[in-house]
Design a protein around this nucleic acid. Structure first.
Lengths: 198, 198
DNA sequence: CCTTTTTGTTATACTGTATAACAATTGTTT
DNA sequence: AAACAATTGTTATACAGTATAACAAAAAGG
């Protein structure tokens, strides 16, 4: 039996099968809703035996998780470097880089927002982003502010994800340059302003 | 056969059955995840014949929809009266009323946020709230603002829902009075400020 | 009290998940 | 190149959950 928790295997057959299954799921999920996809449908698309799926993944959810985690990991890196900026010009540039990155991997982000069944994964991403913002927000906080730091972090994180989702639904317009500016004003400046005063 | 699209029926047996099914779903959904609830489980809990469910609803989704729509309708009314306010004092009071209302119907809102399968319903609620904010935001908008009105409305709506969700997860603390103030500053003032300038 | 409607009981078809046993194929090692 | 090990494919089967049909029992309304 193959370990279902260890995706890294030296056997080329295993790597091939897992890759084919991932690709098949992505192609299916961009066509129809995740909840309506069956394992049989997936293995047919992947041209792989039905039972082979179970030899690698516990469920479709687990496969989807692998697909998303694979691609979403470095979004956090982008946001982290961005959150550390305090210089206005650099803040806008880093904001632009985020939206350019999303543009490049838009298929993946569409899946993250479209699928109704990835709420759990989305929540994990949210928690990570929120933690990053909290760190950069804490020193700016007014000591008597009525807004808790955790709340401010959550506000910025959810706002960013919502902005990204809105942008994807609107055919990625306006372009990243302008989105960088909007991001700075609507999320960073606005929240920091609300948090700095009493 | 009973019409599945007309919930209002004079027959007391029908009203009773539908009410029992709604209550059974609520009690189940507060115990476990919606996705893991089967129709058999529901009818057992409701002490109703299995087939009776299909005589009234097309799917568990449809039943959940009815449960949520029933209770969420007047949240929109609250938000609408709130969005029309421009007076600072009244804005905070109306904000407080929203969170007091959520406190009263917290079970319902927990379901809205908890269930992974209600993304569609949540999206409908979001669209409605967004439309309300857009209307009240449009006249304040600077003509040369880089932020589209639809984006601002979406930002305020998602922020409000995220704030409510965060609040429920944090045992409804701080109390509604303070949440009203936070709402005003973090969502209304911050967004209006971002939208008014160039 | 009699008719209509709803609900319950039982049986059945169907879809999708999950696993087992064994054959066929592919990769690795000597 | 041959031998061995691991993976994949084929076929069969058990099982849970959805969905419907036919008929009996119960409840509602005139």
């Amino acid at each position: 039996m193959i370990s279902k928790t260890t995706p890294i295997k030296s056997d080329p057959r295993v790597r091939r099968t897992r890759r084919i299954l991932r690709e098949a799921l992505i192609s299916l999920i961009l066509e129809k809703d995740f909840a309506s996809i069956s394992i049989r449908e997936l293995t047919d698309r992947a041209d792989v035996a039905y039972i082979t799926f179970f030899r690698h993944y516990e469920s479709l959810d687990a496969l989807l998780m692998e697909v998303l985690e694979e691609g979403l990991a470095d979004l956090l890196v982008h946001i982290e470097t961005l959150a550390k900026q305090s210089d206005t010009a650099r803040l806008e540039t880093e904001g632009r880089l985020i939206f350019e990155y999303i543009q490049k991997k838009s298929d993946l982000f569409r899946i993250l927002f479209k699928s109704q069944s990835v709420a759990r994964i989305r929540k994990t991403v949210l928690k990570n982003i929120s933690a990053i913002f909290q760190k950069s927000c804490a020193p700016l906080q007014h000591p008597k502010s009525p807004i808790p730091v955790r709340m401010a972090g959550n506000h910025m994180a959810t706002s960013l994800l919502a902005l990204i989702e809105w942008w994807l639904e609107n055919k990625m317009s306006p372009p990243p340059v302008q989105m960088g500016k909007i991001y700075k004003r609507l999320i960073i400046d606005a929240t920091v302003g609300a948090v700095m005063s009493i």
